[in-house]
């Protein structure tokens, strides 16, 4: 459904992405792994319309995806940016309500968020800035889901979180996917990202060097040595 074709992007003279092409199919989880500076976050921002790319590089259901961030969200593609970016001064509940901005207020959406993240329900009146890192990440994901997207893009959801919390986050990602939302996941935690992914790409210096199913890539020799820490 989401088609990226020959997408290139340069920050002034530095070429960050070169001819990136891949496809996210309906209802799957796709992981994009790569080292620091490989262009993963740039790719996400290009799709979300935060950075400007050439026209027609990103297509949704055969039509070019809008190019301004708010229009992208209206088309059902939502980005949960790296580093969480919640509204720290507002309560958990207010954060969620603002998340439903494009669809108007949504009671069902809030109920869904609270059943999926019971911890947030306990803290609904608390200021979001006082939540723990894991809770903030969950709030960011829950807020992204409030606009009822077809595709959710997660940029480094495990960044800076304790291993146990990381496990929670990944099981939530799978749960979201089971509810019919396609997931585009960018991660440095390659092992986990490949485990949950239906398919995956490896990004190196702005190019996609490998594509395949999650398990294929997880057993690939060169990927094991480069991203999964040598022996399995």
């Amino acid at each position: 459904m989401l088609h990226v074709q020959k997408l290139s992007y340069a920050y002034k003279k530095i070429q960050a992405l070169t001819d990136v092409s891949f496809e996210l199919r309906d209802g799957e989880i796709m992981s994009i792994i790569g080292a620091n500076g490989a262009g993963k976050s740039t790719l996400m921002k290009c799709i979300a319309g935060v950075l400007k790319t050439q026209e027609n590089a990103v297509q949704l259901d055969g039509r070019p995806l809008a190019r301004r961030p708010h229009q992208v969200v209206q088309h059902g593609v939502v980005l949960v940016p790296e580093g969480r970016w919640i509204f720290p001064g507002l309560s958990v509940e207010e954060n969620l309500e603002i998340g439903a901005y494009v669809v108007g207020s949504s009671k069902q959406g809030k109920e869904r968020a609270f059943t999926m993240f019971p911890k947030l329900k306990d803290r609904r009146r608390q200021r979001a800035g006082t939540l723990s890192g894991g809770e903030q990440q969950m709030l960011a994901i829950a807020r992204g889901l409030m606009s009822d997207p077809k595709i959710i893009m997660l940029d480094e959801p495990s960044l800076g979180l304790a291993p146990l919390i990381v496990n929670d986050i990944f099981s939530i990602i799978q749960q979201i996917n089971r509810e019919g939302v396609s997931v585009l996941l960018v991660e440095q935690n390659a092992r986990k990202a490949l485990n949950v992914a239906d398919r995956a790409c490896v990004l190196e210096q702005g190019r996609i060097v490998k594509q395949g199913t999650g398990s294929e890539l997880a057993s690939d020799e060169s990927i094991i040595s480069a991203y999964l820490g040598g022996k399995k």
Binding site: A48, V50, P69, H70, Q74, P81, F87, P88, G144, S147
Partner: peptide
């Protein structure tokens, strides 16, 4: 006011 980038990412112009 709270966070412009986050506002953009949830679809606010």
């Amino acid at each position: 006011r709270e966070e412009e980038l986050a506002a953009k990412s949830i679809g606010i112009d």
